[in-house]
């Protein structure tokens, strides 16, 4: 939503609690614990969150977005079947169906090591060197797509300059679509804020872009 007008001022609350309701912490924990089972990737869960209708996305609150996306993923992966949650709440019955999870149950003693390890997304490069080098001019492609992408609309078709080559990283667009990791070179690209916006109090805006987002610009 970068550059979209009309959302009003930012309202920082210095005394904000970490969670506003007890159920918010449960939603966080269930989401992380289910995520550890490997039934979906982080990019799939991001896509599930951004697929929530815009009206809801903008109004229901952060952890309700997480809850809705979690429920949608559990349903899409047949972890919870239609009507099962209602039957469980009303009658306490649980269906015998189980989906096989790629990864084992996350147990309490595994939480600290699992969080400390994280899930690095850099991979051993294959298929040749990075196409772009720091200092090179590039243009962010124009992508009309309803699929998951991490290329913000506000830089599309704009020219920028490669600042750094981060490495060879799992490609979010492919992974969100269930097409595997399909790693690509990842770059940091600097865009001139004035060129993006016409008028801006920023000097520059930096974006991380996978190689398929970018095309070369010939020096004139």
């Amino acid at each position: 939503m970068g550059g979209v007008a009309g959302f009003g001022p930012v309202s920082p609350d210095p005394d904000e609690p970490l969670f506003h309701e007890p159920w918010e912490r449960d939603v966080l924990a269930i989401t992380l614990a289910m995520g550890a089972r490997g039934l979906w990737t982080l990019d799939e869960s991001r896509f599930a969150r951004e697929s929530i209708p815009a009206n809801d996305y903008l109004t229901i609150g952060y952890y309700r977005i997480w809850l809705q996306a979690l429920e949608d993923l559990l349903s899409a992966k047949a972890v919870i079947t239609k009507g099962e949650l209602e039957r469980f709440a009303d009658e306490g019955t649980v269906s015998a169906d189980r989906v096989r999870c790629p990864k084992p149950l996350l147990q309490a003693e595994s939480v600290a090591p699992a969080l400390a390890a994280g899930a690095p997304v850099d991979r051993e490069p294959e298929g040749g060197a990075a196409k772009f080098q720091p200092g090179q001019r590039v243009r962010a492609r124009h992508k009309e797509s309803t699929a998951h992408t991490r290329l913000p609309a506000y830089v599309q078709s704009h020219c920028g300059e490669i600042v750094a080559v981060h490495g060879y990283h799992v490609f979010a667009d492919a992974q969100a679509a269930g097409e595997g990791e399909s790693p690509q070179w990842l770059y940091n690209v600097r865009f001139c804020a004035e060129k993006l916006w016409g008028e801006s109090s920023a000097r520059s805006v930096h974006i991380d872009c996978w190689e398929p987002y970018l095309e070369a610009v010939s020096d004139e």
Binding site: A29, I30, F88, L106
Partner: peptide, 28 residues
């Protein structure tokens, strides 16, 4: 709704309640 979802996932063996507590403790 959250409590029902959590109980169902625990009952079906997908998540461990002790792990949920450990996750919350970590970030709190």
């Amino acid at each position: 709704r959250v409590r029902s979802l959590q109980s169902l996932l625990v009952a079906k063996g997908y998540i461990d309640p002790d792990a949920l507590n450990a996750l919350i403790d970590t970030y709190e």
